[in-house]
């Protein structure tokens, strides 16, 4: 039931004046000047809600309201009740998908789709929908979050590594994609789905991240990812094959100049039992303090932590 071919006035003809709720109370602060049409639609829908009327004419009006204001969560909730009552959930999910395309940053639209998928208990077009949406905006939070939910709920992990790799290839700085990659690794290695796919090993994954970090060394994302993998593996940072070599690099100055590499290297050295390593870590934090004045207070904090550890050793 969509109103796109009808006009609003015609839809309003389905309501008697007596069925409209009175005009809404006016906000004394931040009053929005409503267009007459919009105000009429809301009076009609509010009237229907107050009568507990779930009807086709109400659904038509809710669509008109959503056209003006896709954040109108009351109208979305009305549409859910209506589509369930009328057995039109399959149709409604198409409507939701269309709305996702025009309002990709809206909470309600994505939630509507998700609830309907829950009701049908099948992942109707959700992978395609999130893929299309992410191709438009590769960092859309709602789309990544929804994809996680779908993939987990319906065990759809099999092509996801390939999927996310394309996003990292397109933009190695896309942190949303790195986050999704971590989600996959954690779920497939440690989650209930670990039997499901041939996932890469943590070692392979770490060397992947090291390779990616070399493309653009001042990209924070793979550095955070490497730290996270070692925590997952309960592995001391120093044991990560190739990592320390990558950090030391052929040119030691390169590591010192790169605050992400220097930070990670300093944290590795700080974990060591050797006093000399700890002192080397302190030196790196000192350098960071001088070369990254924006974060001076944070590096001071790291420095004082390592100094306490040195004086204890």
């Amino acid at each position: 039931m969509s109103c796109t071919e009808q006009n609003g006035a015609l839809c309003m003809d389905a309501f008697n004046t007596s069925e409209l709720a009175p005009s809404s109370e006016i906000a004394p602060v931040g009053c929005i000047p409503y267009e007459k049409d919009y105000e009429g639609y809301w009076r009609a829908l509010r009237g229907a809600i107050e009568r507990e009327e779930i009807s086709d004419r109400g659904a038509v009006i809710s669509d008109l309201i959503i056209d003006y204001n896709p954040g109108h969560y009351t109208a979305w909730e009305y549409r859910r009740k209506w589509s369930v009552q009328e057995g039109l959930v399959n149709e409604e999910i198409q409507y939701a998908a269309e709305q996702v395309v025009s309002n990709p940053k809206n909470y309600q639209v994505w939630h509507h789709h998700r609830r309907l998928v829950e009701i049908l208990d099948k992942p109707v077009d959700a992978l395609e929908l999130t893929r299309n949406s992410l191709e438009e905006d590769a960092k859309n939070y709602h789309a990544w979050s929804y994809r996680q939910w779908i993939v987990k709920k319906f065990d759809l992990f099999s092509n996801e590594h390939e999927f996310v790799s394309k996003f990292i290839d397109a933009d190695v700085r896309n942190n949303s994609a790195w986050n999704y990659r971590y989600f996959l690794i954690r779920e497939t290695k440690f989650g209930p789905h670990s039997h499901f796919v041939e996932e890469p090993s943590l070692v392979q994954e770490t060397s992947y991240a090291i390779r990616k970090s070399r493309l653009a060394p001042h990209n924070e994302s793979p550095w955070n990812y490497i730290r996270a993998l070692t925590r997952l593996a309960r592995m001391p940072l120093v044991d990560v094959v190739g990592l320390v070599d990558a950090l030391r690099d052929s040119n030691p100055q390169a590591t010192i100049d790169n605050r992400f590499a220097a930070h990670l290297y300093a944290d590795i050295l700080a974990e060591s039992d050797s006093r000399a390593d700890k002192e080397a870590a302190a030196k790196l934090f000192q350098n960071l303090r001088d070369s990254d004045p924006c974060r001076r207070r944070y590096w001071d904090h790291k420095l004082s932590t390592i100094q306490k550890s040195i004086s204890r050793s």
């Binding site: 267009e35 204001n69 009351t74």
Partner: peptide, 8 residues
Amino acid sequence: FVGLDSSQ
């Protein structure tokens, strides 16, 4: 600001 009608 009609998009904020649900955020009064």
